[in-house]
Computed example of a mutant assay.
Amino acid sequence: MQTASTVLMVEPIAFGYNSQTAENNYFQVEQKDADIQEKALQEFNDFAAKLRSKGVKVVTVQDTLEPHSPDSIFPNNWVSFHENGKAVFYPMFAPNRRVERRTDILDTLRSEGFSIEKVEDFSHFENEEKYLEGTGSMIFDHDYKIAYGSVSLRLDEELFRKFCAEFGFTPVVFHSFQNVGDQRLPIYHTNVMMCVAKEFVVICLDCIDDEMEREKVQEVIKSTNKELIEISEDQLQQFAGNMLQVQNEAGEKFLVMSETAYKSLTSDQIQRIENHCEIIHADLNTIETNGGGSARCMLAEVFLPKAL
């Protein structure tokens, strides 16, 4: 199944700019407002309410004050939940993000009726300074068992290939870049430059600088018969690649994105998306600016089977 009908969200309690992740997340800008947490919480609650209003099941858990984890609002980087009843814990680049891994969150999902039969823990690779930040760094095409991964400090190629071998995905490895001042630097997470939905793929091909890699990615997408919807690098900077398709329990599909991303799209791009599904967009400006992540980063899909 490509789209989940349940998502996990972590409610912020001390959200703010994270200097450790800003080392290679060039989307982050530090705001000095005293009410950043209050604004982020309002954005979080409004976003969750929009999803629920469409019938998407949202399981929310609250962050903890101690240990302090300013990026806990982005749970998809440290955990993923699979149809075979497995949860996976991932190795994280920033030391202050590693404390986000919480086994009590698994208990919350069990209490919601989901079955977690095994936890696959890759976090020990942090000791080797190898990182693989979940569905931030990997984009899954579940229908075709393909995993797309853009190499960066947050995606170690060897570890990515190891994950794919263990979980039965065919890895598609490439390198993507963005302009930072007068430099061309690696994009920190694959999910800011591409999104795979049931019937289409949104992607910024212009940020794949190597022509052979770019053609390879296009060929793989073409082989899945999914419509390819290109976005520009300027749109990528507005989080237009950071989208996720979800569905409600009736099977109706939605493409989820931020207000910033939505406003950056052309009418043609919007129409092409809406030919396949409705768009849900929410104001996430405070979260995007300080956290350097957007709508997709806030959602951990729950594909787990229901407990018998």
Rank of each mutant, 00 (worst) to 15 (best):
E233H: 14
M257S: 05
V302S: 02
T3P: 00
E213H: 12
H124S: 12
L228A: 05
Y17R: 06
V151L: 03
E215Y: 05
D71Y: 07
H142D: 02
K222S: 09
A307M: 06
F160H: 15
T224R: 02
F163T: 08
M193C: 09
S176W: 03
F15P: 07
M138D: 02
K118M: 05
N225K: 13
Q247N: 13
P95F: 03
R52A: 14
T60Y: 07
L265S: 07
E30D: 10
K198S: 12
Q2A: 09
Y90C: 04
V246H: 02
D121W: 12
E249C: 09
A282R: 03
M1F: 12
K198W: 00
A40H: 06
P91E: 08
V246F: 11
D71M: 06
S258P: 02
K54W: 00
R154C: 07
P186L: 01
R272T: 03
P171I: 10
H124E: 08
T103P: 00
R101L: 01
K57L: 08
F303A: 04
D33L: 11
F122Y: 15
E166L: 15
I287F: 05
E230T: 13
S123T: 15
R184G: 00
K50T: 01
M138W: 08
S53R: 05
L109M: 03
N225G: 04
A147Y: 11
E278Q: 15
V56D: 00
H124Y: 14
Q42T: 13
E252T: 14
R184M: 10
E129Q: 15
G181A: 06
I187P: 00
S72K: 12
I287R: 07
R110I: 05
V202R: 05
D35G: 07
L51T: 01
N127A: 15
F140Y: 04
F303Y: 13
N76F: 11
R161C: 14
P75N: 14
N84G: 10
P305M: 09
N45D: 08
S115M: 11
G149W: 08
K222A: 09
M138T: 14
E288G: 07
R296I: 09
K145M: 11
A307H: 04
